[in-house]
C-alpha cells in the first residue's frame, strides 16, 4: 500500500509544471524515504531529478518500494481539476496498474477522486557522481528566469561566465548582442534577494536557451536558484522545495565542434 498526502495540491501542480516541458512521461519511484523521479529528455541533453522527502508530506506510507510510470500530461489534467488549497492524497495498491488522486477541499464539503492508468516505462537509473564544482552561484530564482527570458530574444545560446567579481550572462544573434552582469551582493535585506558566488576557479560555459527556459518553469517553487558549474561537466540548476525536497536539472554544455 502506498499513500502520500500533501496539504496543498498547488505544490504538486508547480512540480508538474516544472517538468512537463522536458518529459512526456516519467517513473515515480516511491520508497520509505520518499518519492524520486529521474529522467532524461528525449534528446538526452538534459536530466530532471526530483526528490520529495517522506517527512515533507502530511501523511506518508509506503509498505513496499513501488515504481509508478505516469503520463505527465494526463497527470496535469487531473491536477487542473483540483483547487490550489485542496489536500491531495496519492494512493496505490502494491502491484497495482492504476493510481488514485483524491482531492479534498479545505472545508471537506467536496471530495473528488481520479483514477489514472499507470504505464510500464523502461527507464534506466543513472548514478550521478558527486562533483566539486568550480563555481556555485546562488541568486533569486525570479532574476534568473528574467535574464534567461530576456536574453533568449537575441540568441539561441547563453554564455554563463563566472569569476570572483560576479556572473555574466551573454548572448548574440542576428540583431546584435546582450550582456547581463550580476555582482555578488555585499548587503541584502532579505536572504532570498542575495547573489552569492562561491568560486574555486573561473568557468565559462555555453548553454542552449531552450533548456534554460524550460528549467525556469520551476521558479514558482523556490525563492532562490543555485547554478553549479565546472568545465566540461553538465550545469546543475537546483531549486529547493521548502520543507519537501528539491528539483534539479542537469544540462550538457555546448561544445566546440
Amino acid at each position: 500500500m502506498f499513500e502520500a498526502r500533501l496539504i496543498n495540491s498547488v505544490t504538486f501542480k508547480k512540480v508538474l509544471d516544472a517538468i512537463k516541458d522536458l518529459l512526456n512521461e516519467a517513473s515515480f519511484d516511491c520508497s520509505e524515504a520518499g518519492i524520486q523521479l529521474q529522467a532524461m529528455d528525449n534528446s538526452h541533453v538534459s536530466l530532471v531529478s526530483l526528490a520529495l522527502r517522506s517527512d515533507g508530506f502530511d501523511k506518508y506510507r509506503c509498505d513496499r518500494n513501488l515504481t509508478m510510470g505516469m503520463n505527465l500530461a494526463s497527470m496535469s489534467k487531473i491536477f487542473r481539476c483540483s483547487s490550489n488549497d485542496d489536500t491531495v492524497t496519492i494512493k496505490a495498491q502494491d502491484d497495482a496498474d492504476t493510481v488514485t488522486f483524491m482531492f479534498e477541499s479545505k472545508k471537506q464539503e467536496k471530495i473528488s477522486d481520479y483514477e489514472m492508468k499507470l504505464m510500464n516505462l523502461d527507464q534506466e537509473h543513472l548514478g550521478i557522481p558527486d562533483t566539486d564544482f568550480s563555481c556555485v552561484i546562488r541568486m533569486p530564482a525570479g532574476e534568473f528566469a528574467r535574464i534567461v527570458r530576456d536574453l533568449s530574444q537575441f540568441g539561441e545560446s547563453i554564455v554563463i561566465s563566472c569569476t570572483k567579481e560576479g556572473v555574466k550572462f551573454s548572448t548574440s544573434g542576428d540583431i546584435g548582442s546582450a550582456n547581463v552582469k550580476l555582482a555578488q551582493t555585499s548587503s541584502f535585506e532579505k536572504e532570498e534577494e542575495a547573489v552569492i558566488i562561491e568560486m574555486q576557479e573561473p568557468v565559462t560555459l555555453t548553454f542552449a536557451c531552450q533548456y534554460l527556459n524550460s528549467f525556469t518553469k520551476a521558479t514558482p517553487l523556490a525563492n532562490q536558484v543555485q547554478l553549479s558549474m565546472s568545465d566540461n561537466v553538465p550545469l546543475v540548476v537546483e531549486y529547493q522545495i521548502p520543507d519537501l525536497g528539491h528539483l534539479r536539472y542537469y544540462l550538457a554544455p555546448k561544445i566546440e565542434e
Binding site: 534528446s43 541533453v45 538534459s46 548514478g127 557522481p129 554544455p253 555546448k254 561544445i255
Partner: peptide, 14 residues
C-alpha cells in the same frame, strides 16, 4: 562553431 553536447557518458547507468 559549437554543437549541443549530450549527457550520455556523464552518468553511469546503474
Amino acid at each position: 562553431g559549437q554543437v549541443q553536447g549530450r549527457l550520455d557518458g556523464f552518468f553511469q547507468v546503474l
